[in-house]
Design a binder for these strands. Structure first.
Lengths: 109, 109
DNA sequence: TTTAAATATTCCTTTACAGGAATATTCCCT
DNA sequence: AGGGAATATTCCTGTAAAGGAATATTTAAA
């Protein structure tokens, strides 16, 4: 799992950019306008997202269309797999706890 | 989706703490030793994780046992749902592209 | 080839935050 | 009550990064 992914998403504007790009590719100016931030800031944030691999860009004449890449999200999903067992954990723990209690039944306290 | 979750996970030591806690609850001192960081830093990072709701703590005499909470991970998983369609996107896009081509067949260029 | 639009880059300032060292706090034990 | 272990907190310093303003760059069009 790439730490840069979390790093990129931790910043509010960048998080919103990713959210907006979910609806489709968008231009720098449109993104800036949508987020009510200035164009240079938008460019900077997009650069961070680009370096983190969260977005890709397709130059088209004057404009640059930014769009989401799927890989980081798949990677995030894959990383989450390790943690999915947590939300079954309580049952597992209860199970193990009962077994442990049983096996320790003859142990001197 | 809580930005604090990304923020908490963006820091290398905290990411490692979460990774380590996956194997089970652990004490502050053990975490510090395991990560080869100093105890105060461990406490500070754990405080951030605690405030972000990523971990919970159970005081036990002198020691404090930190363990993962499932909620933020479930929330992350739920957030990811919005993005899962991205990795089917290419097919959708191809589909739409073909339809568009067809509907534009009689358009003057 | 000049002009204008869209975007990127640079420089500056300010703020947030991580680490180090020292200290406070809490709890158990005798 | 006093001492020691485990943990939290505070203060300080350095650094990374975000925002603002100005400017550079690229491209299309006249």
């Amino acid at each position: 799992m790439e730490l840069t992914t979390f790093n990129a998403l931790a910043e509010p504007s960048r998080f919103r950019i990713v959210d907006i790009l979910l609806k489709g590719p968008m231009t720098v100016g449109d993104i800036a306008e949508r987020l009510e931030i200035r164009q240079p800031q938008a460019s900077k944030h997009l650069k961070v997202l680009l370096d983190a691999g969260l977005v890709e860009v397709k130059a088209e004449a004057n404009r640059r269309n930014y769009m989401l890449r799927s890989e980081p999200f798949m990677e995030l999903d894959s990383w989450l797999n390790n943690y999915r067992e947590i939300w079954n954990e309580r049952f597992d723990n209860l199970d193990e706890y009962l077994k442990k209690l049983q096996s320790e039944g003859n142990k001197p306290d």
